[in-house]
Each structure stands twice: as C-alpha cells, then as structure tokens.
Design a binder for these strands. Structure first.
Lengths: 329, 329
DNA sequence: TATAAAAATGTAAACGATTTCATTGCTGAT
DNA sequence: ATCAGCAATGAAATCGTTTACATTTTTATA
C-alpha cells in the first residue's frame, strides 16, 4: 500500500507538496499539482487517516451514548447527529451503555485515549459525577436526557410544560380520573413530567391521588403492560392514562385490548416521543412529539463547536402534542 | 496531557519500559513496574490510541453497513456484532447507507483510508462490484443480505426453505388463496422467498396466481399498507398474506383493521424477522424468526478472523417459524 | 538588468506509541 | 575469579501524515 513518500518520489516532488495537493492548498502550481495527481492515480494511493489523525491530534469520531439501541426513540436523534457529523467530516460511534457503569466506562475510555473527540450523552442513567469530571477535559453535550445544573450544555424540551399540555388535553375532553405512568424519579425528566401532571390537575381543581401514579422500572413495552394491569385492577378505575413513553403506552394499549376494553372509549391513552410505531398501532397513539431530528442536529452542532474550543449554551426546543385515535372523542 | 515520554522521565526509565508495562509484558521487574505505575498515576496518563494505531497500522474499528437505522430488524444483529467486537477490543461504526451509492462510498473510504479494519455489510442494495473489488484488499463479511457467488463470505438463513415453511403453515391451517407481499426481485432474498412460496403451493397442488403476488418498493410500514389496499381490492380475495418483512405485515394488519376486517378470521397474516414490535401488535404477529443475535456474533467472529488474515467459510443458520395470533385458528 | 517581493517547493521536526536490536547487570557454574 | 547465559533495560527506527521554517524560483518594478 503506497504512502505519501512513494507518491512524492513518483511525482518527483517533496512530501510537503503532495500533502499540500491532498489538502487543497492553493500554493502549489498547476503543473506540479497535475504531476502529483497523476502519481496518486498510478499508485492507487489513499492517504492514511491513522497518520493524519496522529499528526492532527484528533480522531474525527464522535461518541453517542444511548442506554439501549432497541429503543426507537433515539433513532431520529441519531440521524440528526449523523447528518451534521458527516457534513463536518466526523463519524459517529454508537455506544449502547445498557445503563451499566462498566460499559459506560469502556466508552469513556475512548475519549480519554483520544479515540474520540467528544461525546453526546443521551443516557439518563449516566454517572453524573464521572461525566462532570470528564467534561473538564473533553467536549461533552447532553441530549434529551440531562443532569441539571452540572454545567454541561444540553439540548432538551420543556418536559414540565409538555406533560402539562398532555394532561390538560385529557382534562379538556372530559377526563377527571387520569393515571400517570412514570419511571423512577431519580430521572430529572420523570420529576419534571410529574410536576406537569400535578399542575394540570390542580389547575382544574382536581386533587392528585397517589393511587393513580405508577412507577415502572424501565421504559419498555412489558413495563407498560405490567403497569396497566395494576391500573385496570384499581377499584375506582381511571378513564385515561398518560404514559411518559410511547413504548409504555403501547404496552398499555395491548393490555387494555387484552382485557376486552376499548380505546379510547373505556380508556384514553397518551404516550410520549412520537416514535414511528406510535402511528402503526390500532388505535393510533396520541403522543407528545419531541423534535428529535432537530435535537440531534442541535446537539451535533454544539458538540462540534465545543470541540473547536468554542463556548456553547444549552438549548430548549419546542414540542408538539399530536392528537390521534387513542384520545379521539 | 501527558505522553509516554513524560511518564518515562518521571519514572526514570525509558519509553520502551513504559510501553512494556502498558502492554503487560512480563520482561519488566516488579520494582520498575511499580515505579512506572506510580508515574502513570501521578501524571494521570492515558495512552493515546492515535499513536498506537498508527504504529500498529490498525484502527480497531469495524464498519457496519445498514440501509436504514430505522428498521428494527438490524438491532439484534448489531448487538451481537457489538458484543463480540467489544470483547476483542474492537469498536463499531454504524453506517446508514440509505441504499445510496454516494453515502456508501463515503463509508467505503473509511476502510480505504485505514480508519476501519473491516466491513460487515447488511445492505441488500450494496453495489456488488465495488464490494467485490474492495474485498480483494480488505476484510469484508456479508450478513443477512448478500450477493451470491461473489466470493465474499456471508452469514444467512435458508430463505427459500423459511418461506416454504411459512406458506406451508398457512396451507396446513386450511388456506388456499395465499397472497405474497414481496420486494423487488433484484434482491436475492426476494427471489429465494418467492421460490419457497411457489414450491409450497405446488406441493399442495395449487397453481401460483400472478394476481396474488405483490411487489413493494421498500420494506416499510407504509409499503405494507399500500400493498394490502390492493390485495383487499381483488375480486377473488385471498384469505391469507405472507409478507417478507414484519413491517410490511404490520402495515397490512393496520389496513385490514381499518377495513373493518378481522385478523386472522378474515385474513391471516405472516411476517418475517420477528422484530420486537411483532409481539406488540394486536393481534400478535406470526413470523419467521431469524437468529439475529447469533447472525451478528457469527459475522463479527468471521470478520475478526479475516482481519487477522485467516480464511473463513460462509455460514447458514437455522430459522424458526413463530406461530402467534395472526394465524391462530 | 538588477532587485525586491511573492510564489512555489523542500527539509526536517513533530504527533505518540511499539518493537528490534544492543547493552547492561545479574546469577550461578566452573 | 571468570564467564556463559539470562533477565532487565535502553536507544533508536518506525508507522504516515502535517507544517513551521528555509530555500529556491518566478514575477513585477524601477
């Protein structure tokens, strides 16, 4: 495999000149440029990024930390990140942490060892202390899920308000007994969405009943099924459920169907995230749409700016309540 | 940021010794080893992979080529690849080609430029000629989708037989009018699955009707809806559909529901792939399960062997017909 | 035409590791 | 006490680029 030396020799110039041609610098005459290009062609030369990266002290790789690759919520965000990355000549390394600190650390090592230039973290269970420590030396952006007040820039939506609007929608179409299907309150977004839920109820003069608030271990389909089973078993059964993720809501949907009940007739359901599948269910799912693609592009731009040494501010993007069959009168 | 030189200085040894400690070579005395480790701690040293990679002429990165990140079919495969990769100290770069030769070429460039050590291609629309050319110089494995007879090792299932068994199942539960929802026959798997469909019908003395065979542009949900709409409009309507992907089948399901018909009562449906979501629909979907995780691990092992310079053979794994509600009597 | 300025090119030093080969320091056998 | 043989260590080359600085060539100006 040819290297730059051999190209230089073949073209009868120095390696510096070859490098200049390679990088499109204009301080090289047309004649030599042609010579060099001809040599490159003859030798089938491809510049090695290994050499270049070492010399430039960069890897041009961006790490994306997600808890689980199976959660479709992240897909659009990843697309957004990827498009910006590619157009800036970066590549992305997709890292599934399983919310496991050990796996997490393997990936953190990649930036410590210069194999990655920066990190976009979307793992809500990320170890905030490690992240904070890391952020002192390396470029890090939090996306969608974030630890608040730790000085690492993030991009997100107003979770409290989004939740408020979803619940308000249920109230407006006449529901008063509304259950909340939430995850562990160790997650900031879970706390925020609960607050929105509470505020909406209070605005309508309805007191929050603890029996109507459920916590799931995780955001998956099965968790939604399990929680829904409990909800259906309540004596004074709610007539609507607001789930903090679409997968939870889809699990709920399935369980309601299995119980022979009708959505939205017997039980209205709202999800969160507007994943692709939320439109494929029967009935289709009312959900809160996060601008996922935009979140991805925003996060990527911020990170690249940060890698360049710039200073970036956190961003809060707009959400949208998408009303579909699962709450349609 | 400290480098190996500074560590050597701090420890009062040569860089060679530090390197030996780093790589766990045993030809270094306990005393010096401790000195070096102490120096590493003091300086907070982390070895740079950029230097190491250049020296070793490797990137320890594996490329995964998939047509679309949104297709959940690939997720389990990717997990399988990732686990093997990690345990062999490789990282994976996930590349979405959109079946676009231009994007594809960007990623091929990564291996040409030494930024990746090998490729696992899962894109059925990959440019076979380029791939073949590339395979002469670089390690390449095809997974799940493959161009046959081009001398690049692959891992797959017996698509013809899988299709045969799916259709046979429909025949056994009494269906005789069975539609096939296929994709473009430029894909090998599409041709193979059609052959299985034909063989099953012929085995039962049923002639293949061209009006019952539909081709979709793509493997997505909407394609399934569109095709189903056509199927429902046929005069002598089939009573069962075999779709070559779960997403197609789920689109069909939705459309059948929308038409006020019942699954499986009015129309039985079988999908292909056993994606997570196939168990979340209502009714749940009968489908052909590919051993996706295993396909991933197999492909990864093969690739790593190939990178090491070894010779590897193609692998054909077992599939399984998973019977669920959408075909249940 | 001589000369200053500008353009084109070259030389050699990084970047940060690994590894071959050479050297030093020991141990133990004679 | 000598020396072979082995273990531990070091010096320096190497991987393939980019780039600061030096040098040469060209161009423009008087």
């Amino acid at each position: 495999m040819a290297n730059i030396q051999q190209v230089a020799k073949q073209a009868g110039v120095s390696v510096a000149t070859v490098s200049r041609v390679l990088n499109g610098q204009n301080s090289v005459s047309v004649k030599t440029k042609l010579k060099v290009e001809e040599a490159i062609r003859q030798l089938n030369y491809e510049p090695s990024m290994l050499g270049r990266n070492l010399r430039n002290s960069e890897s041009r790789i961006i790490l994306i930390l997600i808890p689980s690759i199976s959660n479709p919520f992240y897909l659009e965000i990843i697309k957004g990140i990827e498009n910006i990355a590619i157009s800036h000549n970066y590549n992305i390394l997709l890292c599934e942490t399983d919310s496991d600190p050990k796996k997490e650390d393997i990936y953190f090592d990649l930036v410590r060892k210069k194999m990655a230039d920066g990190i976009i973290s979307m793992d809500p269970a990320v170890n905030v202390d490690t992240l904070k420590e890391l952020a002192k030396k390396y470029a890090i952006i939090q996306c969608s899920e974030y630890g608040g007040g730790i000085g690492i820039p993030y991009v997100t939506i107003d979770n409290e308000e989004a939740s408020y609007r979803a619940v308000k929608h249920l109230l407006q179409i006449g529901h008063t007994k509304i259950a909340l299907m939430n995850t562990d309150e160790k997650f900031l977004y879970a706390r925020e969405r609960k607050m929105g839920y509470q505020r909406a109820l209070q605005d309508h003069g309805i007191s929050v009943k603890n029996e109507y608030v459920f916590y799931t271990q995780d955001l998956g389909f099965e968790n939604g099924q399990q929680a829904m089973r409990k909800i259906l078993a309540i004596d004074d059964r709610p007539t609507a459920v607001f789930a903090v993720s679409d997968l939870l809501a889809i699990g709920a949907l399935k369980e309601i169907n299995a119980a022979g009940l009708n959505v939205p007739g017997d039980m209205a359901v709202i999800g969160f995230d507007k994943i692709d599948f939320s439109n494929m269910t029967n009935p289709t799912l009312t959900t809160v749409a996060q601008p996922m693609y935009k979140m991805g592009t925003a996060a990527a731009k911020m990170l690249i700016e940060k890698i360049k040494g710039g200073n970036v501010d956190s961003v809060i993007l707009d959400f949208e309540l998408v009303i579909r069959e699962s709450t349609a009168g």
